[in-house]
Structures are given as structure tokens and as C-alpha cells.
Amino acid sequence: MPTVTDPAIHVDGLRMAYGRRTVLDGVSFEIDGGVVALLGPNGAGKTTTVEILEGFRRRDAGTVRVLGADPQRADETWRARVGVVLQSWRDHKRWRVRELLDQLAAAYAPYAAPRGRGAHPTDRLLARVGLTDAAAQRIGTLSGGQRRRLDVAVGLVGRPDLLVLDEPTAGLDPAARREFHELLHEVVDDDGTLVLLTTHDLAEAEVVADRILLLAGGRIVADGSPDALARAVAGPSEVRWSAGGVRHVHSTDDPVGFSRALLTGPDPVDDLEVHHARLEDAYLEIVRRHEADDPLARAATTPSEALR
């Protein structure tokens, strides 16, 4: 069990190369709770990072501790605490939904007593992911959205302390995607499960994540809440107004407070506009720089340097 001083995920100086291609070049971060999105363009090393955290891939260098253990050497009790949501659409086609969940849930039985928490009863899990009516259906006959909900159910079946999802909404239509985001929030609210997901979709990261880790050029180039990132990237919000025919612009971290002071002040104000920093602009800018292989971006060592 992690202690108070032991973060759920601790990554320091993580390096990984495939042949001569360096994918991760000194990735460091800590995660303690909530929903965290690992955001980055395709090929940024997101999948490699989560595979290392899941214990499916051996790293070249660096320190990694997940739930108090090194995933590379972790035992089966550790495995029972980590839920993995896979992007699969072909396996177990002949199995019925309930049949598969029952079979997989049973795998967690020997670890229930030491952990003090066992697998979800299948009925409750089915209800939670909205598959109660599909319980007797063959998995091969599920729709894309149902299939993805089953993937989440499989990830959750052992009541994990950590749930890892790699590009969970790839291939989902917007409605299914929104449904998926709601499901994810319910999971965290109900069980206090730490959720780490990867996405290359900024809008998704903004909607689901309490915190975003932005991975580009083999490093974490930004780290913070969506709001904080937007401010760090695009600078503070801008308040524009005109007073007595003269246009004014003022940058502030507190646009509401500033506007209130402005409106309750002595001068009459027309045309008040607040422009929020837009994370999207920043993200696109970072991705563009890294795709252009910008030496400035590559050399960056701190988020603020990388983002300006």
C-alpha cells in the first residue's frame, strides 16, 4: 500500500529508444490522484510511457514506481491493483459479456483478502457501464460503443487502485465519446480510482482531466490543470474595453476581478471583451514546433521555456 509520502506514480528520468530512435528522453512526473491525461501528438511516446507503467514494456533507463513497486519487477498482487483498458475489438468474440466478466473477475479472488478489496460483482459492473441489457449477448455482436464500455468494464473488474487507458475514445463517434467521458467520471467518483489516460485530442483532455501532462519531443513540456496550462501557454487573459472613445487592452490573471473593478469604477465603459487564453492555440503551437523539429523546443528544459 502506498504511504502518504509515496506518490501513486513516480517517474524520474525515464528514457526509451527503439533502435536509434529516441522516444522518451528523460520523462519525469508524479501523480497522486484524480484523472490525469497524458496528451501529445501521435508518435510522442504516450503509449510507450503507459506500457512501461503497466509493466508490459522494459525501459532503457530511469526510475519508475507505480503503486509502490517497480512495474518491471512487480508481483501478481500488484498486477491485481492495476486495471488496463485495451483498445481491442476482436478478442473473445464468441464469449458472452457476462461469461467473460465472470471469468476475469475470478482471477482476482486470491488477491482480495490481502488487498482488502475484491472484484466487482458482475451485475453491478454491468449496471455501471450500462451493459445490463447486453449481458447475454455475444461480444462479437456488440456495437463499437458497447464494445468500448466492455473494455472499461474489463479494466475495472478487479476494482483497481489505478486504471490506465490508452487512447480510449479512438474510433468513437462524438456521442459515444461524450458517454465515455461521463462513464469515466462516475468511475472516479464512486471508487476513488486513479485514472491515467492517453489522448492526442486536446478537447478530450480538457473535458476529462483534472491535470494534463503534455508529452512532446520525448519530454513532459507542460504539466498542470487545463486552465493553468492555458495561462502558462498563452499568457494571462486579455480584457479589452473602450472608454470615452479610447480603446484599452489589459492583461490579467484575474479577468473577472479586473472587469468588476473596471465596471464599478468612475469611468463609463463600453464594449467590454474578455479573451481567455486558449489551450488549443498553445497545444497546436507546441505540436507544430516539435513536428518541425524546432531546436528551441527540443532544447527546452522547463515548461515555460518550451511554451514561449
Binding site: 498482487t77 498486477r79 491485481a80 485495451l86 478478442d91 482471477a107 482476482y108
Partner: peptide
Amino acid sequence: TEVEDGTVLRLRATPRGTTT
């Protein structure tokens, strides 16, 4: 087939799933 279609990985993500 089952290495390719993800069955093996699905089981590998569960405790002692490779044995199972």
C-alpha cells in the same frame, strides 16, 4: 490468432493471466 487479436494481452493484464 490470439496473440494477434489481443486475447493474450487481455489475459496478461489480469493476475497470473498468462498461466490461465
